[in-house]
Amino acid sequence: MTRIITEPCRRTEEPNALLFRAHEASATALLVPIRIPPVGEVRGGFADATEPLALALAQEKEVTARIKDLFRAARAEEDALGEQFILWFLKEQVEEVASMTTLLNVARRAGDNLFDLENYVARETIGDHRRDPDAPRAAGGAL
């Protein structure tokens, strides 16, 4: 089985490239250009407080779907370590989707009374600022 590890290219003229190292009996390196698609138009106007929260929830669900695709790819390659690595990110996405769903529901219940929404955000922990011992290490060292 071939394992592919990606890391940024440091010694290349190609600005948008990743170096793929294939770990086999005859380890070879390939330079594969990649294209990063442009970011869509920034949306700055919303009718009420629920619209940006609904947008954020949709984005979290999209991120979850992409991570699930990575998990399926690791499983198809029978890469147990890759699966285990990706499981941490899936666990984090479950928390993110749950947090955004709750926040959107609170905003819907609050209606035009943004003070209720503000009180909720002030009272509850949104996001998780504790260090997860199972988290992968940050690239380049501690943040």
Rank of each mutant, 00 (worst) to 15 (best):
G111I: 04
F89C: 01
V97M: 05
T102A: 06
V106I: 13
Q84F: 10
T102G: 07
A110I: 04
S99G: 10
A110Q: 06
G82T: 00
L103Y: 06
N105H: 15
D112H: 14
S99L: 07
D112S: 11
E77N: 09
F89K: 02
W88Q: 15
S99H: 10
R75P: 05
L103A: 04
D79H: 02
T102L: 07
L90W: 00
L87N: 10
N105I: 04
A98V: 02
A110M: 05
F85W: 10
A76F: 01
T102P: 02
F85N: 00
L103E: 13
E77G: 05
M100V: 01
A98R: 12
V106N: 13
V97A: 15
R75V: 01
G111K: 07
Q93E: 10
E92P: 11
A80W: 06
A98I: 00
V97K: 12
V94I: 08
I86D: 03
L103D: 04
L104S: 07
E92M: 11
Q93F: 00
W88D: 06
D112Q: 09
G111E: 03
M100N: 12
L90Y: 01
G82K: 01
E83F: 02
A80R: 10
E92V: 08
Q93G: 03
G111R: 07
E77M: 15
A110S: 10
Q93I: 00
R108L: 11
E83I: 00
V97R: 09
E96M: 12
E83N: 11
R75D: 15
A110Y: 01
E78K: 13
E95L: 11
T102M: 12
A107V: 09
L104C: 02
F89P: 01
A98Y: 11
D112Y: 05
